[in-house]
């Protein structure tokens, strides 16, 4: 079959957008990661691997490992909570479904900082939870300004992003697949494992990536809810750009994060034969 070699004109608009908004900035960051910094914080145009060497320092590696671990744990928590939610929303119909979807999306329409401060009001040492505990004569819970506060903030904030792709792929499933599996002798659990799960693999992966990657770069939540006691990759990177005036080092960290993203996407592509476009 002969394929047309030229692109339709609408594709050109998209291509221009893609190049200026994605490829160009990325190339700039990539390039900057190989430059050096002067004492005063401006950029020296000389090629150097110093930034990447610096990142191999155990301090930065420790931050990287910590951040990856945090993002991983938070993602798994999101999966544990979000998957049943997505499953329920896909199975239920009528008012409950509409209500459920609205509740899921309300956080999207609220300002992010407001939501975080909402958590502070809830879990702060004089917050609603502690006031309840005090009223019941129980000891205070200090969730905020600890790792747990950060976990909670991450899961709370990113949960809808995980639920939506999973819900979407569950919705697209032929409802008769489940019945067919039962009919042929599978128990509920076997049906779930052998029929449902393999067919929503893509949704699961997309949802996890949508959540894992941004979490790697998070710094507002660790600052506001974690008491800024621990620096994660996002914070270290932002500090390079704004406080410490070491743009090349910051770019190196940014490049590293981008490479992680590309690696995750490549993994996904290999794992599911149909690829990204099919899943969405």
């Amino acid at each position: 079959m002969k394929t047309t070699q030229y692109l339709p004109s609408s594709a050109w608009a998209f291509l221009i957008w893609l190049i200026t908004m994605t490829l160009l900035p990325f190339t700039i960051i990539l390039g900057m990661s190989f430059l050096e910094r002067t004492e005063l914080g401006t950029i020296l145009f000389s090629f150097s691997l110093r930034n990447y060497q610096q990142l191999l320092d155990w301090v930065y590696l420790k931050v990287l490992v910590k951040t990856v671990w945090l993002a991983l744990m938070a993602t798994l928590s999101c999966l544990a909570i979000g998957f049943p939610v997505a499953y329920y929303l896909a199975r239920v119909q009528g008012t409950m479904k509409s209500l459920g979807l609205i509740l899921l999306f309300i956080p999207f329409w609220t300002n992010f900082i407001l939501r975080i401060y909402g958590i502070v009001s809830l879990f702060g040492s004089n917050g609603i939870l502690n006031q309840l505990l005090m009223f019941l004569g129980l000891p205070k819970a200090s969730i905020l300004y600890t790792r747990w506060g950060v976990y909670f903030g991450l899961v709370y904030n990113y949960l809808p992003f995980l639920v939506v792709p999973i819900y979407s792929s569950l919705e697209k499933l032929d409802p008769f697949l489940r019945e067919a599996a039962f009919d042929l002798g599978a128990t509920r659990f076997q049906t779930f494992r052998k029929v449902i799960l393999p067919n929503i693999k893509e949704g699961l992966f997309i949802g996890s990536i949508f959540v894992f990657i941004p979490m790697l770069g998070e710094y507002v939540i660790p600052d506001l809810l974690g008491g800024a006691k621990e620096a994660f990759l996002g914070k270290v990177m932002v500090e390079q750009f704004f406080i410490l005036q070491d743009w090349p080092l910051g770019s190196a960290i940014a490049t590293m994060l981008s490479v992680l993203l590309l690696a995750a996407l490549w993994l996904q592509n290999r794992w599911t034969s149909k690829g990204l476009a099919h899943a969405i």
Partner: peptide
């Protein structure tokens, strides 16, 4: 249904998309 020795051919077939033809048939 899974405890009844009755099998069904569905109107829209309900074949498992993640399996080959062989595996679909082998499923039960």
């Amino acid at each position: 249904p899974h405890r009844r020795n009755i099998h069904t051919v569905f109107q829209r077939y309900a074949l498992f998309p993640h399996l080959t033809v062989f595996e679909n048939i082998a499923f039960p």
